[in-house]
Design a protein around this nucleic acid. Structure first.
Lengths: 115, 115
DNA sequence: ATAATAGTACAACAACTATTGAAATATGCA
DNA sequence: TGCATATTTCAATAGTTGTTGTACTATTAT
């Protein structure tokens, strides 16, 4: 991930409805949801939802798959990881004890961490 | 952290120079850097740097402290953690094995994780 | 084939954001 | 006090992004 790429991701997320879509799809997991269900869930018009889904897709944070007459969207977890990593790379010059009480906690995002 | 707050943070980061400032200050740690040094490091004019620093400050991602005639800016690590947590909350409905190969890795952001 | 459903594309307009240069403020030093 | 340094503020302009409604395309079922 480079800076331009990261800016595209961040700009895609920097909108109320798109952030809601993103978080919905992160919660939903790899199977995703069809566009209509997403639109309804966040209270957007079909046109609006389509526009925002396209933005998120363009940034690579989600991806679309046609299934019959539905188009399912799902979070692209690898890209998400890349973006989060990019944001906090080399934090505190490799001495995480400096921000220990803060960034560390962010790693408890998903449970199940073993090491 | 709520959605509005998160959108403000993400919008603040969704700019090439501001992202560069943010990453510089994350690397730098709690002591931060004076505005002029930041401007020089990212190749911005004093006016431009000031504008972008203000945006990041307004979002709560960094904070300013006057030290003599310098103004030092430092990352606000607690806010950063809150934002990262907000983005990936309840991922995969609490079954991280679904995205296990991806999000987990993002937790290796800072080394020094012990548990 | 035709109609119904799911979703996208386009165009016009409004709203917001970034950039620039010049002027202002704050602090420290001679 | 007066000058230099560090940084911010302001105003004008240019550029980008979001919203809305209408029209279009793709798929399925009758």
């Amino acid at each position: 991930m480079n800076s331009k790429d990261a800016v595209t991701c961040l700009a895609a997320l920097a909108h109320d409805q798109r952030l809601a879509i993103f978080r919905l799809l992160v919660r939903e997991g790899p199977s995703g949801l069809p566009a209509g269900e997403i639109a309804e869930a966040i209270g957007a018009t079909p046109t609006g939802a389509s526009f925002h889904l396209k933005e998120l897709d363009r940034a690579g944070l989600i991806h679309a798959t046609r299934v019959g007459r539905y188009i399912r969207y799902a979070a692209h977890f690898d890209k998400i990881r890349q973006m989060l990593t990019f944001l906090t790379e080399d934090c505190c010059q490799g001495q995480p004890e400096l921000c220990g009480s803060t960034i560390k906690k962010a790693r408890k995002l998903c449970k199940g961490e073993t090491k």
